[in-house]
Simulated scan of single mutants.
Amino acid sequence: MLMNGMEVSLHREGKPFGVTYAGKAPTVDALLNAGRNVCDVVALDLQLADGSRPGDNTARLISAGYKVLAFTVGTNQAHIHEALANGALGVSLKTEPLAETFSKLRRVAAGETIDEIQLATAIELDTEFVEANLSEREKECLALYATGFGQDQVALRMNIASSTVKTNIVRIREKFAAAGRPADTKIKLYIRAVEEGIVPPPQPLNKRLRRSPKGTAQ
């Protein structure tokens, strides 16, 4: 379900990519009033004409049982922050090729959180915080997992069992929560890793926006 002006493109081009267009709605109210289970994923435009807040819209859609992919030009980082903080599973820029947006829609439909390291800068980093006191092995695990590797891939690189990786991630999240810095999503784990100096900060979002969909500078 799209809430923006690209519905025609999705209707015509989405099926070969495994995406079926269900319809559009001008507001979240209109979608929710249409009934339940209208679609699997809402590609939520973060600037709707009714002036509603992206965070409120995201939270309402998730409460109604929908998965949310934020869809935006990317110039308003506060809007991206609101959507991610309220449960959006990823962000797709309107400047991206349609094939990339289709891929993200499929992944979100499957329940996957899309790790947009460049977009993680939209969530504020704490400038003063209580250290989580991670062990060296926990730091190594976090550095791999938070930057995109799956649990099995982390296990292979650390030469440990996948179950041990899972246990480490649980422990890492518990330590951050105890320090008052919750990290309940993979994007938040990445941000905590940046704050701790475990991984370098990402490329600023505005640099990405200055590039064309083909990756050539504009």
Rank of each mutant, 00 (worst) to 15 (best):
Asn57His: 00
Glu13Met: 05
Gly51Phe: 00
Asp56Gln: 08
Ala83Asn: 09
Ala78Gln: 15
Gly55Val: 00
Ser163Gln: 11
Ala217Cys: 02
Val73Pro: 06
Arg137Thr: 14
Gln151Asp: 15
Lys24Phe: 13
Leu89Glu: 03
Ile62Met: 03
Val154Ala: 04
Arg181Phe: 03
Ala110Thr: 06
Asp126Pro: 01
Asp184Gln: 12
Leu119Lys: 06
Arg60Trp: 00
Met3Ile: 06
Leu31Ala: 01
Glu128Pro: 03
Ile169Ser: 00
Val154Ser: 02
Val165Gln: 02
Asn57Arg: 00
Ile114Phe: 04
Val8Met: 15
Gly14Thr: 01
Val8Ala: 11
Thr147Arg: 15
Gln153His: 15
Glu196Phe: 03
Val38Asn: 07
Ser163Met: 05
Val130Tyr: 03
Arg210Trp: 08
Thr147Met: 09
Ser9Met: 14
Glu116Asp: 15
Thr101Tyr: 03
Arg12Ser: 14
Gly197Met: 07
Leu84Glu: 03
Lys94Ala: 06
Pro200Lys: 06
Leu93Ala: 00
Ala85Phe: 04
Ile198Tyr: 01
Pro204Ser: 10
Val42Asn: 09
Glu100Asp: 14
Ala161Met: 08
Lys186Thr: 02
Arg36Phe: 12
Asp40Ser: 07
Gln47Met: 13
Met158Leu: 14
Val38Ile: 07
Gln218His: 10
Thr164Asp: 05
Gln153Ala: 15
Gln47Tyr: 12
Lys15Arg: 13
Glu174Ala: 14
Val8Tyr: 13
Glu174Gly: 12
Val108Asn: 08
Lys24Gly: 10
Val42Ile: 11
Leu48Pro: 01
Gln151Ala: 15
Gly14Glu: 03
His11Thr: 10
Arg211Asn: 09
Ser92Asp: 00
Arg211Tyr: 09
Leu189Thr: 02
Leu142Glu: 04
Leu2Cys: 15
Glu112Asp: 11
Phe149Met: 15
Arg60Thr: 07
